[in-house]
Nucleic acid binder design. Structure first.
Lengths: 228, 228
DNA sequence: CGCTGTGAATTATTTCACAGCA
DNA sequence: TGCTGTGAAATAATTCACAGCG
């Protein structure tokens, strides 16, 4: 076993929620035991990688047998903060912000919405998912009162950096950014950016590549009526 | 210069859209020339990494000077499929699906929504963003008619794999999945999954870690107003 | 016997650091 | 001179493959 205090690879961390999800599905189906091969398949990774990932936290399996599902759920769950109901604030209550907070799956059960902020007077004061939207100038006030541990930014690009700076100054260390821009934050603050346009462009890259490959040799015809 | 035909690292591909975005911003501000250092900073990467990434495609810079912004915009744009207006279909018109198609920034200008599919009779027939929602059993029909190159899945988990299989069978090679589940698809098909709950759990992992670290020594207190 | 946990090998990605061109 | 493009080195992540335990 490897010392749990050593640095967990970021790539491993990013896979843990996937493992947990796969385990939950198994548990729901009444499965109480899995081999690394089965769980890896459910999570879409190689079995050796799964075992390596788990080994960073300790030995939870039984040789010749596999893993007890409840044991792994508990272990991984602890690491990704399950059962804590982390308080979350959302800044920017436009289409996307509203969709996210209405997305029941998202906040159940490990996260709870505690504050909503927007700068549109039309929106301020309205209640969404049981939370009343406050004005942008109340942001620091709201953080002091509601103590969110995670802030989701769903503002336009123009506002995102300022919001990020202000929430970090107010003591928040974790930011999930949906604005398509690079945010800078001091060391020790975790910022993750989800850029939907970027995802589409990555797919487009591969699509463009497929066409280019066909131009040379034609390996497999993808879409029957190929390029329309 | 490295042969453009050799394999572009996936990590490089994932950064290209970010470079393009940074370049657009510069272009808008009237900047016509950048050094790798400046552009790298705008995109949030190291300058050597930017240069290495670009070198996979060829030499577009001038030693001692830097890069011409329009040249790079064109080059990178070509690779990520800018100016093609890729046709996109969205399956699942719930909160999230609706928010995505209403998110004007997302589809401008390199992607265009060509089809919407849902299985809710309440929703089928309605028009969103200029596109009429068709029933789930029309999915193959709609693909044959509208020729989407990319399909966005915003259905519940239970439906996601079936949708994925059907769209791939109908000839689609690129899928952007928002359902929190692992999708399997044949080789040659690109599937990217954006899992919002997973993102929150990754942040929670780091939050939990910060607390654990403090248990030993107490470096910085997270969620109160210390550093205003 | 079957499956975990992990050294060792491999592969991928990033960074260093500098030769060489404009 | 200043900055690109890139070998070479360093680091990170993954996979192989098998010893060893239940």
């Amino acid at each position: 076993m490897i010392n749990p205090a050593d640095q967990i690879p970021e790539a491993t961390i990013a896979r843990l929620p996937g493992y947990l999800r796969a385990l939950m599905e198994l548990a729901e189906r009444g499965v109480t035991r899995v081999s690394s091969t089965e769980l890896a398949k459910a999570a879409g990774v190689q079995s050796a990688l799964l075992r390596r990932d788990l080994s960073h936290f300790g030995s939870y399996g039984t040789r010749g047998v596999g893993y007890e599902v409840p044991v792994l759920v508990k272990e991984i769950g602890e690491h990704v903060g399950s059962g804590n109901s982390w308080p979350v604030m959302v800044v920017g209550v436009g289409n996307l912000g509203r969709a996210l907070v209405s997305h029941s799956e998202l906040f159940d059960p490990d996260f709870r919405l505690v504050a909503l902020v927007d700068n549109d007077p039309q929106v301020v004061g309205s209640t969404i998912a049981g939370v009343t939207v406050v004005a942008a100038d109340q942001l620091e006030q709201e953080i002091a009162t509601r103590h969110p541990r995670i802030v989701i930014i769903t503002t336009p690009v123009a506002a995102a950096q300022e919001v990020c700076t202000r929430v970090v100054d107010a003591g928040v260390n974790s930011v999930l950014n949906f604005a398509p821009t690079t945010l800078s934050a001091p060391d020790g603050v975790t910022v993750r950016t989800v850029d939907l346009g970027q995802e589409l462009h990555i797919l487009a890259f591969h699509e463009a590549r497929r066409v280019a490959v066909q131009a040379g040799a034609a390996p497999v015809m993808p879409a029957q009526e190929k390029s329309q």
